[in-house]
Design a protein around this nucleic acid. Structure first.
Lengths: 150, 150
DNA sequence: GCAAGTGGTCTCGATATGAAACCAGATTGG
DNA sequence: CCAATCTGGTTTCATATCGAGACCACTTGC
């Protein structure tokens, strides 16, 4: 059997994160969940995903504690999928992807959605990485230390 | 022909970003590139990826302007793959994934790699999303406005 | 009660993946 | 300078996964 590769045990949090949400659909489902999508059909029609795929992904994400099911908020007998605390923790991953996409994948005139602060309606600030003392760090100001090499 | 779905034209920068780097291997390759990996064999042995897959991914990432090839820095006749400016822009995506993985996918005693400021050796600060006026925003302080609905 | 909507499952053909064989050019050892 | 080995791939093949759509049970609306 050809097994899909997993780097869960590589000792790298990035690899482990991608093991959980690194496939094509998961982050799109999570993005929609942040935008308030909750019902199976909403995800399906919004993403154009095959129903079988969606059922599998929703089950996986639920098993992995990123989504949980809840009774429908409109009082019907159906259930809804909502982000758990763990799932909501992925917000900055989505934001980082969004800012990178805005920077590098759109022409100046291309229409696109935008993330704003709900209270003021103003665009959010760019993400920045800071050192403990507050200085802004770029990629080559940092290094990864391997606590458990290979 | 069953075509792999693309959401490039959905008007969402997140979808477009995932269209470019949303597959299983791309972000792992990029993560390794941030860690200084440059040569085909280094990627291959470090990730355990099949050579055919790696060749395809490196070609795609190069075509998409995330990696570029350069003469080997050791003077040999081989080439190296290095991140472009656009590729380096993905740094915060990797950092966000890393912090989420550290928070939610590791037990307190599990060994893992860690991101530090090179100059001081101290761990980097957590990423935060700020409003234009500096306040920290959580996911439900924000909303996405659709400039081009559908 | 009946049609439509919801939330799936099942099946099928197309595609992508992983492993391994193979190969040409570059490098190294002797 | 010749052979062995290393590097950076390509090709092939079996299998796994994906996408589309048929199908189905239960719920809701009328």
């Amino acid at each position: 059997m050809v097994k899909r590769v997993s780097l869960w045990d590589a000792g790298c949090p990035v690899a482990r994160a991608l093991d959980v949400i690194g496939d094509w659909w998961s982050l799109l489902i999570i993005r929609d969940a942040f935008d308030g999508v909750r019902r199976f059909n909403e995800f399906q029609s919004g993403l154009g995903i095959a129903k079988g795929m969606l059922a599998t992904r929703l089950r996986d994400l639920t098993e992995r504690g990123i989504l949980e099911t809840a009774p429908a908020s409109d009082g019907s007998a159906y259930k809804e999928y909502v982000l758990t605390e763990k799932g909501r923790g992925l917000f900055l991953v989505i934001v980082a992807l969004r800012q990178w996409g805005e920077d590098h994948l759109y022409g100046p005139d291309e229409p696109r959605s935008s993330l704003i602060a709900a209270e003021t309606g103003a665009p959010v600030a760019r993400l920045e990485l800071h050192a403990g003392d507050g200085r802004v760090l770029t990629w080559d100001d940092t290094e990864v230390i391997k606590i458990n090499p290979i």
